[in-house]
């Protein structure tokens, strides 16, 4: 009796663990099926090379490049903010700041990642854009620049915290050896510690990129809904995620081609982040082995 109970509990636990696998499978299967349906009406070639995306207009064009360009543009701006800031903060906390300061700064910065993204969207639209418009008069009301900048601040803790963890994992002996050879702090930090922690740092950056690509509410609020094949950050653009929100909020009939286009957009988004996540997982495994 006891044995049966134990076995059935174990079976239940396995089932629960399997739900995560079913989730991944579900995502892949659903996106694939709907995208397959979509591609029966739209040519794959047009989809991946077209520079116009107008599914909600009278003349419908399905070229994903404008949405991809919008996504990459905001991501690029965000990383341009988060990478230098986050990395400098990580080095500072690891090499210069004393433990007490670090114990205060790290959680404070992590607040940035806890704030709901719709709040950042509001901040970008109603505060950052008007301020930037005073400096750059040609900046449009919705633009990639302020959305990207605010998103960059949001992902600072992704870079700084994870990179700092990676720096902390470097064996003390390396640092002591560097100091022993007469290096300054700066030399130790950038020529010894950072290269030693490089894979961990790269993992943090990849995760931050993946986060920025999938970010929805900041760009949906502040970057606009105009799919344009441009890399001009002063204009209103549209990202893949914003498009999905736009269709979900509108009254597009289900099972129509316009409706299916969110799955085609979704699989593009999923593909991008899936590749990045796998690279980072693979790198993490490799780098953990190195020092254990």
């Amino acid at each position: 009796m006891q044995k049966i109970k134990e076995k059935s509990i174990e079976a239940f636990l396995i089932l629960c663990a399997s739900i995560t696998v079913f989730t991944t499978l579900g995502i892949i299967v659903i996106l694939s099926i709907e995208t397959f349906q979509f591609f029966r009406e739209v040519s794959v070639f047009e989809f991946f090379t077209g520079t116009e995306w107008t599914p909600l207009f009278a003349i419908k064009k399905y070229g994903i490049l404008p949405l991809v360009a919008g996504t990459l543009l905001t991501t690029l701006i965000a990383i341009a903010v988060a990478l230098p800031l986050g990395l400098t903060i990580a080095v500072y906390l690891n090499e210069y700041a004393d433990q007490r300061l670090k114990a205060v700064i790290k959680p404070l910065l992590e607040i940035l990642a806890a704030i709901p993204t719709v709040v950042y969207g509001f901040f970008a639209l109603t505060f950052v854009t008007p301020v930037l418009q005073k400096i750059i008069p040609s900046l449009s009301g919705f633009n990639a620049l302020s959305a990207g900048l605010v998103m960059g601040v949001m992902i600072i803790p992704y870079v700084s915290s994870l990179s700092e963890d990676a720096l902390s994992a470097v064996p003390k002996s390396l640092r002591e050896a560097a100091y022993g050879m007469g290096s300054t702090r700066l030399q130790t930090a950038f020529k010894v510690m950072l290269p030693a922690a490089s894979s961990g740092v790269i993992v943090s950056v990849i995760l931050a990129i993946s986060r920025a690509i999938g970010e929805t509410m900041i760009v949906a609020v502040a970057a606009g809904q105009e799919p344009k094949f441009t890399f001009n950050p002063l204009q209103s653009i549209e990202t893949i995620t914003t498009y999905i929100v736009q269709v979900s909020m509108g009254d597009v009939p289900q099972n129509s081609l316009e409706f299916r286009s969110i799955f085609a957009a979704g699989i593009t988004l999923f593909g991008l982040t899936f590749i990045l996540n796998n690279i980072s997982y693979w790198m993490k495994q490799k780098y953990q082995q190195k020092y254990e």
């Binding site: 995560t20 696998v21 989730t23 991944t24 996106l31 999938g214 999905i244 988004l269 899936f274 980072s280």
Partner: peptide, 21 residues
């Protein structure tokens, strides 16, 4: 091991994709 990789992957899936699911 497979489930572990899978969970780490899921943690990185954009939230809007969960919406589509």
């Amino acid at each position: 091991k497979f489930i572990e990789i899978n969970i780490s992957n899921l943690a990185g899936v954009p939230s809007i994709i969960y919406g589509i699911l």
